[in-house]
Simulated scan of single mutants.
Amino acid sequence: MDFKNKLFDIAYLIRTFDEPIFKKNIELYKKNNIIPQLTCILTSDDAGSISYAKGIKNICKKYNINFVLDNVSSKLELEKKIMYYNNDNNTHGIIVMYPTPFNIKDTYFMNLVSIEKDVEGLNHEYMGYLVQHEFYSDNENLRKLVIPPTAKGILYVLKRNYLVYENYFKINGIYPDNLFENPFKLEGKKIVVINDSLAVGRSLALMMLNENASVRVCQKYTDYEDIMKFVSISDIIISAVPSEKFIIPTKYIPENSIVFDIAFEGNFEYPDVFDKVFKISPKWNLVKKGNRINDMTLHRLISNLFYLVNRKLPENDLRELKNFEKNIQKAGI
Rank of each mutant, 00 (worst) to 15 (best):
R15V: 00
R15C: 00
T16H: 01
E19Y: 11
K23T: 14
I26L: 15
N33R: 14
P36K: 10
L38I: 15
S49R: 10
K54D: 13
I56L: 15
L69N: 12
L69G: 10
S73G: 05
S73Q: 05
L76W: 00
N87Y: 01
T91A: 12
M97H: 07
T107S: 10
S114T: 04
V119S: 12
V119N: 07
H124L: 09
H133L: 00
K152C: 09
L155K: 06
Y162K: 13
K170C: 08
Y175N: 02
N178P: 00
V192P: 03
V193Y: 02
I194C: 07
I194Q: 07
A199Y: 09
S203H: 01
A205I: 03
M207G: 06
L209V: 09
Y224W: 07
I236Y: 02
I236T: 06
K245A: 12
K245I: 10
T250Q: 07
Y252M: 09
D261N: 06
D261K: 04
I262A: 03
I262R: 01
F264T: 13
P271I: 11
K276R: 14
K279M: 10
V287Y: 12
N291R: 06
R292D: 03
N294Q: 13
S303K: 15
N304A: 12
N304M: 13
L308N: 08
K322L: 13
N323K: 12
E325M: 12
N327A: 13
N327D: 15
